[in-house]
Structure formats: C-alpha cells, structure tokens
Design a protein around this nucleic acid. Sequence first.
DNA 1: TTGAAAGCGTTACCAC
DNA 2: GTGGTAACGCTTTCAA
Lengths: 342, 342
Amino acid sequence: MSSVTLKQLAQQLGLASSTVSRALRNGSDISAETKRRVQSMATQLQYQPHAYASGLRNQLSHTIGVVVPEVNDRFFSLAIDGIEELARQNGYHTLICLTHDSYDLEAEVTRQLTRGRVDGVLISLAGETQGPAHLQQLSSRGVPVVFFDRVSDALGTATVTTNDFDAAYQATEHLLSNGCRRVAYLLMSGKLAIGNQRQRGYEAALAAHGLLLDPDLVLEGGGSNDENTAAIRALLQRRPDLDGLFASTGRLALSAYQACQELGRAIPQDVKVIGFSNLEIASLLAPPLSTVTQPAYEIGREAARLLFSAIIEKKPLLASQSVELPAELIVRASTANLVVSA
Amino acid sequence: MSSVTLKQLAQQLGLASSTVSRALRNGSDISAETKRRVQSMATQLQYQPHAYASGLRNQLSHTIGVVVPEVNDRFFSLAIDGIEELARQNGYHTLICLTHDSYDLEAEVTRQLTRGRVDGVLISLAGETQGPAHLQQLSSRGVPVVFFDRVSDALGTATVTTNDFDAAYQATEHLLSNGCRRVAYLLMSGKLAIGNQRQRGYEAALAAHGLLLDPDLVLEGGGSNDENTAAIRALLQRRPDLDGLFASTGRLALSAYQACQELGRAIPQDVKVIGFSNLEIASLLAPPLSTVTQPAYEIGREAARLLFSAIIEKKPLLASQSVELPAELIVRASTANLVVSA
DNA sequence: TTGAAAGCGTTACCAC
DNA sequence: GTGGTAACGCTTTCAA
C-alpha cells in the first residue's frame, strides 16, 4: 500500500538507517560491497526517498513557485515552458500559482509561498497589483524573487523584461509612417510599469511625428475579453477619425479585431492594427496581424536562470543583474499601407 | 532573515509549542484568553506554519500533481485553469509537470511524484506512452489518479473524456454531407485510445455514406508543427482527389491551414477543413475554422472534482465514476458548401 | 486547560 | 566503515 521508508529498508538489510542513507547518496566512508547491497535492495523494494522529509531536514524544497495572472495565454504558457525546462535541468519542480489578475489572490498566494513550500519565486504581477508589499515578506525570509515581464523595481531584485519602450516606439512609428494620424493606445492596467513603459514609447513616437497626445485615445482595458471588445467598439464609434490601434497585449489585439469585425471596419483600409502578441498563428488571421513579439520562452528561461543562480550560490539577487531581451516587430497585412504614396 | 517557527513563537509567549499549535488551529481545550494572546502574537510576528513540516506529520502534502504533455496549448491551459480553481477552493496547490509527449519524461515525472510530493495526480498521457506501468506505482502507493482527455483504462481508475466517437462521427458526417468524398483523418499518435476513438467515429461516418476506409488518408502526425505541416502538404500533393481534412487536434488543424496556404489550396472551395480545437479565435482565422470544441475548462474541473472526492473521503476511484462531457460542433466557413445543391 | 514527549522520514554529527 | 543520536518544524497522544 504505502511506500517503503528508509528505516524499513535498513531493517531489511540489517543496517542502520544512517548507513543506508549515505550508501544511497554515494557518500564516502561506505564500503563498495555495502553500497552494492543497499542499492540493489533499494531498487528491489522500489524505495523512493520522501521529498519533504529530506527537504525539511535540508531546508530545501527543490521546488520553485511561478506566480502568473493566467496560463491560458500564449506569452505565459511559453514562458512557463522555458521555466519548466530549466527547473527540470536543475532537478527542481514547478509550482504554478494563478492570480487571475487579482491583487487579493496574489497576496494570498504569496503568503502561501512563505510557508517553506518553495526555494524561490518567479512572478509576473497581476494587473490590479498596487505595491509589492506582499512580496517583501518573501524576500525578507530569504526566498529569492525574480520578476518577469510585468515587473516592479520596488524590491530591488532582478527583473527580466523586453525593451518595452523601444518596441512600443517602433510599433507606433510603424503605424504613423504607414499613414495613420489618429492612433489609439490600448493597455491593460495603468498600475503596471510595463503599461507605462509602452505608453511612453507610444507618446515619444507621436511626438516625433509632431502629434500631441490625445488622452481620449488611451484606453484602459483590464476587464473580460467581451468588456474590452465593447470598450474598443465604443471608442471606434466615438472617434470616427481613428485610423490606427496599438494594442499593448495580445488579448487586446484580438479584441480590437473582434470590434472591427463587429462594426464592419476593414483592416487595414479603415483602421490599421498592431499589437504585442505571441500568437503563433498571427499569420493565419484575417487579415494577418502585425505583431510585436516577445521572446517569451527565452524570458522564462532567463528568469529561471537568474533564480537558480541565486538559489544555488545562495547569493541575493541584485537589480543590476536584470536582463532585457529584444522584442521583434513582425509586419503583416494588418498595417499595410494600401495607398500609393506620392 | 528566516521565518519564525512555532517553537520561537511559543517561547515568546512563555507557552509550550503544543499549546500554541492547538490555539492556532482553534483546538478545543484552550482558554479563550490564551487563544487571543497566541493569535495576536502570531500575526505580529507574521508566523506562517511550515507547509512541509505539518505535511510530514499528517502525511498530507496539500498538493496535487498535474501531468500534461504541454501547457502551451489552449485545451491544456484551459483545463489547468479549471483544475487550479478547484484546487484553490480546496486549499490545495498545483504542481504542473510537463512531459513534452515523451514517455521517458512521463515515467521520470511519475517517479518523482511517488515521493510523497502530492496527494493525488491528474494526468493526460503523452503521445508516446505505451502502457501505464509507471502509473501503477502511484496508485499502488495509495495516490489516487484521474485521467483526463488522453486516458487509459488499464488502471481501472476514473477518467474524464469527451464523447470522442460521436464528435468525430459528427465532424466527418458534416464534411461528407457538405459534398466531400475523400476525407483524410489527421491524428497525433496511434498509441493513444483517444485517437482510436476518434478514428472509429471517422470510419463509421464513412461507412454510413457507403465509403471505404482508405488507409492512405489516415495520417499520423506527432512531430513538430513544421513536420506535421510538411506531412500534410505531402499528402495534399500525393492525393489531388482529397477534398476534406478532419484534424483530431487543434495543432493539426492549424498545420492543415498552413499547408493549404502554402500550396495555394483554397478553403473551403478546394479542401474543407474541420478540427478538434479550443482556439478561442477560430472565428478570426482566414477563413473561420469549423471546430469540434471540447469543454476544456469543465473537463479540468470535473477531473479535479473526482480527485478531491477521493482524497478527502479517502476512497479509491472507480472506473464507474468516469465522466464523459459532450463536445460541441461549431460550423464556420472552412466547411461551407459553396456549390448549390441540386 | 496546559505541558512533555514521541514521532513523521530524512540527514548530519560524532562516537566507536 | 558503521551505528547511535539529535534535529528539521510540526501535531498528537498522554499525563499532569
């Protein structure tokens, strides 16, 4: 029924459990003969050390926590793939915690993770998140934390991001140089640094083209997909002069498509659309979507790499170790300039 | 630096740790006054019980394991959302393990899970999986296992599936009644029960239309997306008479689109395409994709519900508790019959 | 109502 | 080389 324990294994062999323990972990001071006997009996009885018992003893859980808003999103699921790969390589397990973009859930989850469950945490903040006070508890207990994508610098720890300012600048610039004059900016939450970085890039591109920021064209989504679609629809109706949409997340880009489809606005003739997105099938959409694509998998790997370096070398993480990976602008039909320029 | 322990808390209060333990968990036999003092000191010192220490004592990890081929797939990420919701409601954590469709990885992961890490396991089998011998180890140690979607009945435990036969029958029937005569069936792995169920539905629908099964039209993918696309392209070129594609996974449906796009085959004029898929934006594809959509979120919830019933009531799961949820056929433009029927 | 002690399964330290 | 013992942090008898 239940598993065989070290003690039972030792009894079978007529040895002390301490001896068996060392034999199994190939410790020194154990005769080759004993090692052989122990190993063979262990496989025979299918002995598996209890992870949490040894963890308790060593103060190590061999588990990392990954806190993300959701997993049903191409960016996060790719990042998790990357994280998980590094975790496996390091003999670690991955505890996935979802916040559904709720601050309360994030705080609760974080509290749970302060209970010795994990040796380190990777986190991408919830849209609602105010301050990272709840994360302070983690790092003050010596649990290293790495932020990725939706980061905060309030903890003074390492972060992994993309070049949000530049990428947003390029995306907006691309719309403007393809003829757009009224470009809206769609973001999830004004509370996140990432949204502000991208907004700054958007504004800088406007300025470079001699355009003033129109606050009415900055739309904060953050609701359900349907709510966001409705909000974008309302914006399109309110502002018939709108000729470009820059979505700062993949979700919002698709809501923009949906809204245009519902209103019969042709992309790219009436409105050009570009968005941050990791959608692998952007090219199969009608029309193919121009995207700013983040290296999600690499971001996950990089964040995990930093975390494991801290865990293994037992050194605290520094803001100076932060990494920025470039996003890639991929031009497709949704921003095509169909007017022959003079 | 590190966390405060029960013992330290007790010392601060001048009480025995056993008393403090009971006071915190609101045990009987503790004076209201003591409870109050303990609670307030606990919050003041931010005491958090060590999860694995109490787990070790109670033989409970309050963690479930979820073993899936990948997380970067709409079906699985939705299912995980459902699982995670139920886990949270039950005060449980979710350990996600990816197999990348490799039998060896699945076996390794399973071995890890036999180490007391989890109180139960939800699993969707890897495409390569042969027999569930490695899972026998789990259930023989009293760890309940529930299969979902890619199931096996060899363990005699509960499963959660969709009506794969009927759904595949309907999808094929839909193609045939819209004028297709040569319909190919695309599957991931001939080793999985799920692929065979769906193939049986496909064959039954062919038979109902008086068509013979052509083995050349049954294509086993299971490689990378690019490999699958190439294989479908080859099939389309080899068999110019092909006028319908039925993909048994979302991944394969998209590869089918890609292959048609590359060869310039028009959907649905030249080839009609339908596929199992949870892609939320099927309607934004060019053309909108007809799908058989599984209730992925509910499948996750249902599987988790069964697992927790077994964990909490400490009763073994029975094959008779298995649940089948209906998939939904959603007709879109990719299977439209553009010829006016006589 | 509270405290002492044993034990969950493992490992580290010190004797022998 | 090997065995005892204590300890990781907690809960649960059993006594007081």
